[in-house]
Amino acid sequence: MALLSPADWAIVALSLKVGVVAVAATLPVAFALAWVLARTRFPGRIVLDAVVHLPLVLPPVVMGWLLLLGFGASGPFGRALEAVFGTSVMFRWTGAALAAAVMALPLMVRAIRLSLEAVDPRLESAARTLGAGPWRAFATVTLPLTLPGMIAATVLGLARSLGEFGATITFVSNIPGETQTLPLAIYSALQLPGGDVQVARLAAISVALSLAALIASEALARRTGLRHVA
């Protein structure tokens, strides 16, 4: 198999940029949602839970179309972005990151919620009686105890982002150098006569990246598992 061409490297770099930005931006949102779903009871919680999980069960093409409606030139969010920041996510890598973030969100919320539910909330009240305010109690007790869940969420989110296809191509199209991530590049190469070699190279990269992410998460989970789980 031939070594990677500069074009291949550009595709990998773009995919990683899209994935990392998507996961980094989604992590705090996913944590907040997981906390609300795990620790609070309010009418409409079931609806919120369902909406968060929607990207998991909806056809990605539909998700991409919904994003198009919202963030397109005439969509409410698209118009707001244009008016406030003079920018748009349409046909940009930021749009690809947004699509990846939305598709990764339910997986990340699930992973964090599971680990939050395993943390005894009474530990925080113990911290309060020891002189910690609510934020310090949260940051020194609950947050470190949910670290394994955050790692799992990061890896799942990254994997989902690197694999995102349907929502991305529907929302921001398939533009080399801007929105053409690995799966989209593979799809394009498949359309070309004689593209098999590039398909094989890009597929091999996908396998390697996924394996690396899984191994890294397993190694991290073992280390934090020894340190954090009661």
């Binding site: 530990l123 113990a126 470190p144 954090h228």
Partner: peptide, 17 residues
């Protein structure tokens, strides 16, 4: 945190991490 009461809980609640 402002009450200056030390509490020994029945379930202890030591920080596992």
């Amino acid at each position: 945190e402002k009450r200056h009461c030390g509490v020994v809980f029945q379930d202890l609640r030591l920080f596992p991490h």
